[in-house]
């Protein structure tokens, strides 16, 4: 009887380990990825990956993940059915973030140490182009129609607009100090960019490439220099954006129609990157200093779970397919 119970538990456990949805979190200082079961909100597995994993994205079919192993100077490809590394992409030195073109075969990566944007063709594993950008390129975003992509450079304080057909740098817009994350709105009309040291989020018109809005944040009891916007996510069907505010330990909830900041959600220390689950009912945040992930209800803005992961969680993505 005892044996049966144990084996039942074991099979349950292994079932749980592969049950979807699951969240993947890169732990920058542990060289691992934590996998969180999105039903039990437990860490069900921890996988070793390349040195200093940061950016993490899923392929469109969610069968593979692309991981920036920054100190290993490569992008690792992981087969998500068995969590094995099945290949590398030639990322150039120190890849920090990655973005996938909607065609599913072109991947962009920013090489922080070389002031370059590298464009890679996934099937052939070849570098198609390297484009000179500003110092310490960081945030990447591809428009939903796939025609335009942007890269932000942290020390140059710019958004570089790149034509995805010609790989030409077509425009450069100045933005507040130390731009980090960038996101196109669903209709591709606007681009949102966070500035960590500037303490702002800038909204650009993608036609004119001009700044049309600047959001700044004032939180009672939090010193203004601690408000450092980093990760941004925009909801698909609802007019809301969430912006992680770094050492302010909060996420701002912004109405994208009125540009009003409607709420601040208190999460873990040094909140960094954000991701939604499939129906966007839940938002996940990586909290670098406290080494955990907050799981937030996107309607009530309540933190429903806090999941301890590895040291310095950085990238996050949810797999549901």
């Amino acid at each position: 009887m005892k044996f049966r119970l144990v084996s039942l538990l074991c099979s349950l456990a292994s079932f749980t380990a592969f049950a979807l949805p699951q969240a993947y979190v890169t732990n920058e200082k542990d060289n691992t990825i934590s996998i969180i079961d999105m039903q039990s909100f437990d860490v069900v597995d921890t996988i070793d990956v390349g040195e200093r994993p940061r950016g993490f994205i899923l392929s469109a079919d969610q069968r593979h993940a692309y991981i920036c192993a920054s100190d290993a100077d490569r992008i690792q490809i992981m087969d998500l059915s068995n969590h094995t590394i099945v290949g590398d992409l030639p990322s150039g030195a120190d890849p920090e973030t990655i973005a996938l073109h909607p065609n599913g075969t072109t991947i962009y990566t920013a090489n922080e140490d070389d002031a370059l944007l590298t464009v890679i063709d996934i099937p052939s594993g070849e570098v198609i182009s390297q484009i000179d950008v500003g110092v310490e390129p960081e945030g990447l975003a591809v428009s939903h129609d796939g025609k335009m992509m942007v890269v932000t450079s942290e020390t140059t304080n710019m958004v570089h607009w790149i034509d995805t057909q010609t790989h030409e740098n077509v425009a450069n817009s100045l933005v507040d100090a130390r731009p980090r994350d960038a996101h196109f709105t669903m209709d591709d009309k606007y681009l949102w960019v966070s500035s960590e040291i500037g303490g702002t989020v800038s909204i650009f018109d993608t036609q004119t490439k001009q700044k049309v809005h600047t959001l700044s944040f004032e939180i009672k009891g939090v010193y203004r220099d601690k408000v450092q916007p980093v990760g941004i996510v925009l909801m698909k069907d609802s007019p809301y954006a969430f912006v992680a505010l770094g050492p302010a330990n909060r996420i701002a909830v912004i109405n994208t129609e009125t540009f009003k900041i409607e709420d601040y959600i208190l999460v873990g220390r040094r909140v960094w990157q954000l991701a939604f689950n499939e129906d966007q009912s839940l938002l996940l945040s990586t909290n670098g200093v406290s080494g955990d992930v907050s799981i937030i209800n996107t309607t009530s803005h309540k933190v429903e779970h806090t999941v301890k992961v590895g040291r310095y969680p950085w990238g996050v993505a949810v797999k549901w397919k």
Binding site: A115, D132, G134, V135, S153, T155, T156, N157, M158, H160, N172, L174
Partner: peptide, 10 residues
């Protein structure tokens, strides 16, 4: 060097 990378664009 850093400033001139930015300067190239401006």
């Amino acid at each position: 060097e850093d400033a001139n990378i930015t300067g190239k664009f401006l």
